[in-house]
Amino acid sequence: MGIKETALAGTLESSDIQITLSEGSGIDIDLDSSVEALYGDQIKKVITDTLNKYGITDAKVKAVDKGALDCVVKARTMAVAQRALGTTEEPNWEVL
């Protein structure tokens, strides 16, 4: 499943991650991280897993990470996924 509209969540503050979702085919993640060498794969895995839980399998992901912990990466991905699907008024509690 793809997304309905381009959406953004998160900030560029230290220990945060800013994620943008736009239309694409497959999950294509462009990650820019201050800890890429150490946690790049882990960050991509958390984003992909979280998107999949929302049923999103087709989206272009731009992520700018400033050292966010996994729980933050997950929270920002959930926010951006719901915004991109237009479901912020009826959150998917299953994913939480």
């Binding site: 800890v35 060498a37 150490l38 946690y39 790049g40 794969d41 882990q42 912990l69």
Partner: peptide, 8 residues
């Protein structure tokens, strides 16, 4: 807290 990093 931070997870296990990959090796440099």
């Amino acid at each position: 807290i931070v997870g296990k990093p990959e090796e440099i």
